[in-house]
Computed example of a mutant assay.
Amino acid sequence: MKKTITARQNAFQQVVVTLTNNQTKFSQIAAMVNMFTDLNKLVGETDELITKAGSIPTKTAGNKNLARTELINIALKTSSIVKVYAFVIKNENLNNFVANISMSSLGLMRNQELLNFCKNLLDNISPITSELADYGFTEEMKAELQTEIEDYEKLMTQPRQLISERKTTNELIEDNIDKIQSLLSNQIDPMMELFTEDKEFYLSYKSARMIVDPASHKRVTDNESSEQTEE
């Protein structure tokens, strides 16, 4: 998460706290009440998005190498049985499919190539599972092959999914930050001029509207530091 985004959100949270503590002072001003409601909602949604962004793993869960090894092992075991079966019943197509399969050949396959082979293997054995039982193939082995295929595919696609999810979430956060800034600058800030005589409320609001710029560690208002804190 960008430091400027975090700094702005922290400042917005302080504004919400200040307005919440002084609600009775503007409860009769309908426009101000509506603005505060919108602000509270936007800040809350942004908090949830930031929490979500922080929970998205930066690395793929699990161990792809381990999953690949387990998939190769069950694929080799299954292929060996299919090879014997195809030879005995003289199924040339099936025999050609598994004829050159070995630990070495499976190990040399690229990730997608290995996944495609295993899916095709599963498709080929599904109609003849009962016949393969006479050669040592079991329903448990079939289930294991299915599971290893699914696990390996998940590990292959998850990084892309995580990148996409993280990008979308960060874009939503930045969009919300812009909406909050616009709401404050164009609506609530001008509205606060109605409370200049209430020094405690007015000054506490102005103080809450200040942002700590993480680059310079200087406290500056949004309007004064728009260039420094720009994304």
Rank of each mutant, 00 (worst) to 15 (best):
N116Y: 06
N96S: 08
Q112H: 11
V33H: 06
K119F: 09
D213L: 04
S207Y: 07
V16D: 08
N22H: 11
G54T: 08
T18Q: 10
V43T: 01
S80C: 04
A67K: 10
F201T: 02
E144Y: 06
T37E: 13
V88C: 06
T46Y: 01
A143E: 05
T138F: 07
E200G: 00
L115G: 02
D123M: 14
K3N: 14
Q161Y: 11
T78F: 07
K25R: 15
S204Y: 00
V33N: 07
A143C: 02
N186Q: 09
V43K: 06
V212S: 08
G44M: 09
S79D: 02
I163D: 07
F117K: 09
T46S: 07
L122M: 14
Q187I: 03
T157D: 12
P127T: 10
N176V: 09
K142V: 02
L162Y: 12
L115P: 01
I125E: 08
V16C: 10
T46W: 11
I211G: 02
S126V: 05
L42Y: 06
G136Y: 01
E150T: 15
A67F: 05
F137H: 05
M210T: 14
F36I: 03
S80M: 14
F26D: 02
P159F: 11
T229N: 05
H217S: 11
P159E: 05
I101A: 03
L115M: 12
D213R: 00
P57V: 01
M35K: 05
M103F: 12
I74V: 15
E148I: 03
L66P: 00
E174P: 00
F36T: 03
T129M: 13
Y85E: 03
K154T: 15
F26Q: 02
S164V: 04
A31H: 12
A143N: 09
V98S: 09
S164W: 00
Q146D: 15
E165V: 02
L106S: 07
K3H: 11
I56W: 05
N63S: 13
I163T: 15
K206E: 08
D198K: 10
I50A: 06
N96G: 13
Q112W: 05
K3Q: 14
V17E: 13
A67R: 13
L172Q: 13
N40H: 14
L66S: 14
A215F: 02
S27P: 05
V43H: 04
G136S: 08
L76N: 10
V98R: 12
K206C: 08
E224G: 06
N91D: 15
Q23W: 07
T196G: 00
N111W: 07
L162C: 03
Q23K: 13
N65S: 13
A31L: 13
I81F: 05
I163Y: 04
K206A: 10
R219C: 00
A99L: 13
T229H: 04
K206H: 08
Q23P: 00
T6M: 14
T169Q: 07
P159Q: 10
I50F: 02
E227V: 12
N124F: 09
L155G: 12
S79R: 02
Q28E: 15
L42N: 10
K64G: 10
T51Y: 12
Q13A: 12
T37C: 00
A67T: 11
S207E: 07
N116L: 14
L42H: 06
